[in-house]
Design a protein around this nucleic acid. Structure first.
Lengths: 231, 231
DNA sequence: CCCGTATATTACCCATGAGTAATAAAAAGT
DNA sequence: ACTTTTTATTACTCATGGGTAATATACGGG
């Protein structure tokens, strides 16, 4: 028998590597559990004891992986944001005119909103984070917003999108999509992809039937009575 | 001098009435202050001491008007919901076809979202309330949702609205509108009415330019490549 | 087999903030 | 003026939960 066993010989780094990987897996397990609980019950109603308990460990063990509760919250958020940044880059570098890109973005973003990590982007309160992390979150939200506005502005410029204010239109679209994170449940009747594709269609095509195929019972008038609001 | 001053004579109930009114005014002042702070900083970061301090009183004084912090939160919410219920009733009893009613609803709801009491409807977490009050909130949200769906379904039936799934379309619209409560600021460039009317237009008319007036640079094709989603 | 490191546990600390006496000041009623 | 009721204050209780210190246990390396 040799002084060294074969496995040790094959990969001297393996023990170290596997150890590091085990650690990362545990870290991620904490985040998965935390994000679930935070979404289910809300950040402030979830204690670190709750998180630990669901992982069959005790609270102080968590501090081997994270420095504070708000750091856990931030890392949960970051997981979701990473995915968004990825598909934004993918769409941005891909082909198609502005309207096509906008539709792709809506589709991808809507699907993301049906996941835990996606919902965490809109259901967590950035004010629970440190000032530095709040800055990071704000920057990320700005990136998303800029992308929507860019596609809208480009689309207006190239004629694929009706003249509109990109800022306001971006808010309208983002609102619809973010809201998915509040109501969507996997148990429901709609698959994530189905919701996403319907949203992509509706948000870009609108609802009003300007040119009814025959003639609607409503005898659609072009002119609205007055510009004034309600009341 | 008479034994009774004229005012006292005119209204024997006045002392009692004015007392009750003073009380109600103070109650409302508490709510106005609370709603502001809750929106500014988030419910869990606002202490009752904070609320009291801004009113130049001390915490226990609040307990003359409310039984608990979560009751204050609930009453803040109820103030906003009351307004929504009112204009829903008004629109529902008013004239116009389904699409017209939908536009009125969007307009009114959007305007409401630009106010403190409106924003509280979407920015407060119902899970901070007692189980009973959570029920009330759920019922109210259901009422709003039903109204949107009804107008959409009616519109599809009478031809004023494109065929669509009212459930999903209602979510899309409500999402856009609720989101206003998260981003709108009075200090911004847009008035509440301007935002509301743009939303009413965009959400019902859509964005895509199906029939460009001359011929857009994008050489619009009628056929989209495939029904499948992204990726 | 022993040592050092990583990871876990038990038992604490302690700031925070909702809610509650006990009591004082103010206003209303007579 | 005297009493009662309402409204406010000061001074407290106390449960909660984030975070830490001291310490035990598992584990890979030599």
């Amino acid at each position: 028998m040799d002084a060294q066993s074969p496995e040790t010989n094959l990969s001297p780094w393996m023990p170290f590597e596997s150890r590091r990987r085990a650690r990362d897996e545990k870290r991620e397990a904490v985040l998965r559990t935390a994000v679930r609980l935070f979404l289910e019950q809300g950040y402030h109603r979830v204690t670190l004891n709750d998180v630990a308990e669901r992982l069959n460990i005790t609270k102080p063990a968590l501090y081997n992986y994270f420095r504070s509760k708000d750091e856990i919250l931030f890392e949960c958020w970051a997981l979701g944001q990473e995915i968004v940044d990825e598909f934004i880059a993918e769409i941005d570098n891909g082909g198609g005119n502005a309207l096509a890109k906008l539709r792709k973005l809506i589709q991808a973003y809507a699907e993301q909103m049906t996941t835990d990590s996606g919902a965490s982007l809109v259901r967590f309160d950035a004010r629970d984070l440190t000032a530095e992390n709040q800055k990071i979150v704000r920057a990320a939200k700005k990136r998303i917003d800029r992308t929507f506005r860019k596609y809208l502005a480009d689309g207006v410029a190239d004629g694929s999108i009706k003249p509109c204010d990109p800022k306001l239109a971006a808010f309208a679209i983002a609102g619809s999509l973010n809201w998915i994170g509040h109501w969507y449940q996997r148990a429901g009747a709609w698959s994530a992809e189905a919701v996403a594709s319907r949203f992509a269609a509706q948000l870009t095509e609108g609802l009003a039937n300007d040119r009814p195929s025959k003639r609607g019972p409503g005898t659609p008038k072009k002119s609205r009575p007055a510009k004034g609001g309600r009341k």
